[in-house]
């Protein structure tokens, strides 16, 4: 059995990069305010022309992490090997620190380009864990999987928490700890977000996400990445840092884009939260490349 390190943990506070604000971003003194950037590889593989050139200029300036969209780890279609090969090529070509995907399905017989829930069942645990292992083997690196937001749970036979824990254990993969998703799901499924967070396998967290969401109804939130991060989510991020140390954290913002200066202010807030937990003497914990597991 092959164990892969093959990844580098980012440091500090990052930002999800969008084409729409790339030009503005390059004009700001962003280098001092953002430690790393995150992109979906599927949005940049084989992109040439002016966008491709701007992207390369940024990858030469910033550390990057990749957050995949279309592998459909929990989907019924076979793993897309040509996509995996393209991702591997992309990760190497741009010196990407690490790669994460969603613990969800985005396909039935074809791509729906959105994230659908995986039923929380024992059989699904084995199925998804095996696919994650295959991905790690092909990419020759451990990957992180994100706890996703969801609005409906088809046929659950175990809790969401048990499902996530079982998958990452069995796949021996890393976790992308999405703090906003825990908050959204805690309202959508009426649980205590802090207790849920503390029970997550935070020692496997490669990095974290925060984002804004919308209020659909008193008991329903939708994870849109289209608004500023709200205070309860910032509070939950503080809880995550208290529990697991100042995990590197990415601000995700995909829609209703504000001026870049506003995004950089939210990134600064991540930095402040990380600094204050460091001041309290919480050392960085969580996932690190383990030498005894490095490929030999």
């Amino acid at each position: 059995m092959a164990f892969h390190a093959g990844y580098v943990r980012p440091q500090g506070a990052g930002l999800g990069l969008r084409r729409a604000f790339m030009a503005d971003f390059s004009c700001h003194d962003a280098a001092e305010r953002v430690d790393f950037l995150e992109v979906a590889p599927e949005n940049w593989i084989d992109v040439g022309g002016r966008y491709g050139r701007s992207f390369r200029a940024l990858t030469e300036r910033f550390p990057f992490v990749c957050h995949g969209l279309s592998l459909s780890l929990g989907g019924p279609t076979a793993l897309d090997r040509s996509l995996l090969d393209a991702i591997k090529h992309f990760l190497n070509a741009h010196d990407i620190l690490c790669y994460t995907e969603h613990l969800s399905a985005c396909t039935d017989h074809g791509h729906l380009h959105d994230l659908m829930p995986i039923p929380f069942t024992e059989d699904a645990v084995h199925y998804v864990a095996e696919r994650i292992r295959v991905v790690q083997d092909v990419l020759e690196r451990r990957i992180g999987v994100e706890n996703v937001s969801y609005y409906a749970a088809p046929g659950p036979e175990m809790s969401e928490l048990d499902f996530i824990q079982a998958v990452v254990e069995e796949a021996d993969c890393l976790l992308l700890l999405d703090v906003n998703n825990i908050y959204v799901n805690s309202i959508n499924f009426d649980y205590d977000p802090v207790a849920f967070l503390r029970a997550m396998p935070g020692e496997r967290a490669i990095y974290a996400h925060v984002a804004g969401h919308v209020r659909e109804a008193p008991d329903l939130r939708i994870d849109t990445h289209g608004a500023t991060v709200i205070d309860p989510v910032w509070d939950l991020l503080d809880e995550a840092y208290a529990a697991f140390g100042p995990i590197p954290t990415v601000l995700e913002r995909d829609f209703n884009l504000p001026p870049v200066a506003d995004l950089l202010e939210e990134v600064a807030r991540i930095h402040r939260a990380q600094s204050s937990v460091r001041a309290l003497g919480r050392g960085a914990r969580g996932a690190r490349p383990s030498h005894k597991r490095a490929r030999g």
Binding site: A105, M116, A124, P154
Partner: peptide, 12 residues
């Protein structure tokens, strides 16, 4: 399809 995949298929 496995049983959990049938649920996914109906869902989609």
């Amino acid at each position: 399809l496995r049983p959990f995949q049938r649920l996914q298929k109906d869902f989609a």
